[in-house]
Design a protein around this nucleic acid. Structure first.
Length: 482
RNA sequence: GGCUCCAUGGUCAAGCGGUUAAGACGUCGCCCUCUCAAGGCGAAAUCAGGGGUUCGAUUCCCCUUGGAGCUACCA
């Protein structure tokens, strides 16, 4: 039996990180087992559908590198892969259940139900559909359906006994039937609910393993009742614990939590996100932590899945991102960093190649780059206290002396190269009884106006060029004299 | 409220009856150093609580507590 898995998102917005992780695990499991990974769009709730969301899902999956073997935009033998395009396939199956008694038509309106529900909660009682329409004789019900009266079809859950299913991760899960409601299978608009569509489509599409969030864990026993009523073999279920923002909140856009697209836009690299997400709720069992997608495919094993929710920790993502950036070839880094340099340095004539060399190991997330290099475009306002640094053994007096020595020497320097500047400053320091830091700290401070910079005095002097460097040193001397 | 599920440091986690309870991020020291990074070395920090079972529980069972999910003509 070839393994077939599916990722089945609803087109209600961007692909959030929990969804991305589900897609990733689903993909990994299929590929690990030489199977097929399928994309199915679950758009049966027309009201919640967000325009463009389907395209966004395609885009995100493509960017994540999770290529699906079958899906709406790639085709396949089990299509269509969008549920609204399959709308006619569901009712006959539902009628089959009505015939066997596992389901029944219901003519109660939403308003009536809401009123009864409200009344029940007002009395402090539990509301559950009372099988009111189950008592309607079948021929009468059929007549009313054919006459055009609005109806839904409900699952007829037994009043006694238990319903259960087996999960590859959570084991045997069972629930008392009397706590289960007669869910709607087919809505008044003719479309199926998730409760029905997932069963029909998973079966029709030959899905062998269903991986999805734990929000379906407690309703899975009901789905199994459906499989039994049809006489179908249920798939292997693997429910996945959620990705959390903190101990009690799920990751969600509503609270400003980033989507996959957001992270990419912020300057996180794709492979770092995937690597990090993979390890959020899954462990390879050994101490490896760097994985390419292909390595994940090889290492993936259901045994490593965690049953407890995992908190999305940005610190670690940042670390992964920094590692991936540091390890990427320099030319790739330069290409990726250039647009970020441009945001603040465009037209300034800065040597991007040299700047990129300095920034390569210092870049954690690309969106932090502009702030790190902005001082090259314009000298920030700073105070004289910056010249005092205990460890460097400098204070205003030492700094002034260092700058006054450096200024004419730099002005007279023949070739204003980084190496030449360095040699000059070093010898200038020793000749005048200054420690290296006592020369370098003041110069770097004057050039940058910052306590820390990517690169030291000599690198910055080179990037700035002679004219700008001298001008900034003059400002420093002026400040220290004043 | 009912039902279902979960529980090892701040975070991700290994462990699957006997261990000095791995490792990583983060944090804090020290080294290196023209700042900051990077790099090297080191440190602190975890089995939610209570009962069992057992010669022996982080590990198995029960309860409590805490958290999550479901309880829609949403998925």
């Amino acid at each position: 039996m070839t393994v077939r898995t599916r990722f089945a998102p609803s087109p209600t917005g961007y692909l959030h990180l929990g969804g991305l992780r589900t897609a990733l695990y689903t993909y990994l499991f299929a590929k690990k087992n030489g199977g097929k990974f399928i994309l199915r769009i679950e758009d049966t709730d027309q009201e919640r559908e967000v325009p463009g969301a389907v395209e966004l899902i395609y885009k995100s999956l493509r960017e994540a590198g999770l290529a699906y073997d079958e899906g709406p935009d790639v085709g396949g033998d089990y299509g269509p892969y969008i549920q609204t395009q399959r709308r006619d396939t569901y009712l006959p199956y539902a009628m089959q259940l009505v015939e066997s008694g596992a389901a029944y038509p219901c003519f109660c309106t939403k308003e009536e139900l809401q009123a009864r529900r409200d009344a029940a909660t007002a009395r402090g009682e539990q509301w559950k559909y009372d099988k009111h329409c189950l008592s309607i004789p079948k021929d009468e019900a059929l007549r009313r359906m054919q006459s055009g009266e609005p109806f839904v079809i409900r699952q007829n859950i037994p009043l006694t006994g238990t319903a259960s299913f087996d999960d590859a991760l959570y084991g045997h899960v069972e629930a008392p039937c009397d706590t289960l409601d007669d869910n709607v299978l087919i809505k008044a608009d003719g479309l199926p609910t998730y409760n029905f569509a997932n069963v029909i489509d998973d079966h029709l599409m030959g899905i062998t393993h269903v991986m999805r969030g734990t929000e379906y864990l407690s309703s899975a026993p009901k789905y199994n009742l459906l499989y039994e009523a049809f006489g179908w073999q249920p798939p292997v279920y693997i429910h996945l614990s959620p990705v959390m923002k903190d101990a009690s909140r799920k990751l969600s856009k509503r609270y400003g939590d980033p989507s996959f697209e957001d992270l990419l836009a912020q300057g996180y690299v794709r492979d770092a996100i995937i690597n990090f997400i993979a390890l959020l709720g899954w462990s390879p069992g050994d101490e490896r932590e760097f994985f390419t997608l292909q390595e994940l495919v090889e290492a993936f094993d259901l045994k490593g899945l965690s049953k407890a929710p995992a908190i999305f920790n940005t610190e670690k993502l940042v670390w992964f991102n920094h590692e991936y950036i540091t390890r990427m070839p320099f030319e790739d880094y330069l290409a990726m960093a250039t647009p970020w340099f441009d945001r603040v340095l465009a037209g300034k004539g800065i040597d991007y190649r040299r700047l990129a060399e300095l920034m390569h190991t210092r870049t954690e997330v690309f969106d932090r780059v502009p702030d790190m290099v902005r001082f090259l475009a314009e000298l920030p306002a700073y105070g004289a206290e910056l010249y005092t640094h205990k460890k460097m053994k400098t204070d205003s007096a030492v700094a002034l002396r260092a700058l006054e020595l450096a200024r004419p020497a730099l002005a007279a320097l023949e070739n204003f190269s980084e190496e030449a500047v360095k040699d000059l400053l070093m010898t200038l320091a020793t000749e005048n009884g200054l420690k290296t830091g006592q020369m370098m700290w003041p110069v770097r401070t004057a050039l940058s106006g910052q306590a820390s910079t990517p690169g030291g005095a000599t690198e910055i002097a080179y990037l700035l060029g002679r004219e700008e460097s001298l001008s900034r040193i003059d400002k420093g001397i002026e400040m220290l004299r004043g």
